[in-house]
């Protein structure tokens, strides 16, 4: 019996070990960052001097530490930008997800590829925006439009997977046979039935837009500083513990997003 069992348990042990290591590499830096943000000193193997809220207060802009700026109004600016991008994505993404799932038409495959794959990297879109909209690329308008395009695949994918699990034809036909017009059917029957997917898509696009860096870095020139640039300034210049606190603000946002996603039946931060 032992000769039979050995290879099995050996393989299983190896895979479990790899999985454990992978999970550790993914989690440990997140945990270290979050825990460090409450420490007073980061010299030595582990941070020491718990618990202090000093770095959090600086990151949130509650104390005035000379030239080092806290997030201040930038956080609210990014919240507005992400919300704007999310609304554009709702208007753009939900209808096309329905068209692509419900109807067969010429050019459907092409349109589908265009809608669900992020084809233009943010940094390249940024360069293109700078020349195309020289006066507006770095304004709230330019940022919202850019975020909407960059994150739209996540909305379309998530809503599409919700539509795919529904019997759209039957839903549509029942509502129509009861006398509802097609627009009314779409707004009052189809959309409410996919609300789980739509909510999930909104949360994912919002969270990703709130910390979008590549595009923002390229087009930003002046005005309120978006959240991701605040993070970049911390990561590239601030002391370790200070950056840890700044990044932990975003961790809190992601954890909140994942918790809400779980209430609509999704496992983790993913579009499937």
């Amino acid at each position: 019996m032992t000769t039979l069992r050995t290879p099995q348990s050996l393989g299983k042990a190896a895979i479990t070990l790899v999985t454990g290591l992978v999970l550790a590499v993914l989690v440990v830096p997140i945990a270290v960052t979050f825990v460090s943000s409450f420490a007073q000193s980061a010299t030595g193997v582990v941070p020491t001097g718990f618990v202090t809220a000093e770095h959090w207060r600086t990151a949130l802009g509650l104390t005035d530490v000379g030239a080092r700026r806290g997030i201040g109004s930038g956080l609210w600016f990014s919240v507005l930008l992400a919300t704007g991008g999310m609304f554009v994505n709702l208007v753009v993404g939900v209808p096309i997800a329905y068209a692509l799932t419900r109807y067969e038409f010429r050019g459907r495959e092409w349109l589908n590829t265009l809608a669900v794959l992020p084809l233009v990297p943010g940094i390249i879109l940024g360069i293109a925006f700078l020349r195309t909209y020289p006066d507006n690329a770095g304004t709230a308008f330019g940022l919202v439009v850019g975020y909407a395009l960059l994150k739209s695949p996540y909305m379309v994918l998530t809503v599409q997977s919700a539509f795919q699990s529904m019997d759209l034809r039957r839903l549509e036909e029942s509502a129509r046979s009861l006398g509802a017009s097609w627009p009314r059917t779409f707004v009052t029957v189809i959309v409410p039935n996919a609300r789980g997917g739509i909510l999930a898509g909104s949360i994912i696009t919002w969270t990703l837009a709130a910390a979008e860096f590549n595009f923002t870095y390229m087009v930003y020139t002046r005005g309120p500083r978006p959240f991701s640039l605040f993070l970049y300034e911390n990561i590239s210049r601030a002391p370790f513990l200070q950056s840890a606190a700044a990044i932990s603000i975003y961790f809190c946002l992601v954890v909140a997003a994942i918790l809400v996603l779980q209430t609509v039946g999704r496992h983790g931060f993913t579009t499937t």
Binding site: P29, I30, S36, T207, L231, I235, Y250, V254
Partner: peptide
């Protein structure tokens, strides 16, 4: 959820995760 968490992180934050492990003050 833990495995999916890094999907939400922008590249600069991922860089900081590497610094937190392998940087001069890394674990």
């Amino acid at each position: 959820s833990v495995v999916s968490f890094p999907i939400a992180l922008p590249g600069i934050v991922v860089a900081f995760m590497v610094v937190a492990l392998l940087g001069r003050q890394g674990l």
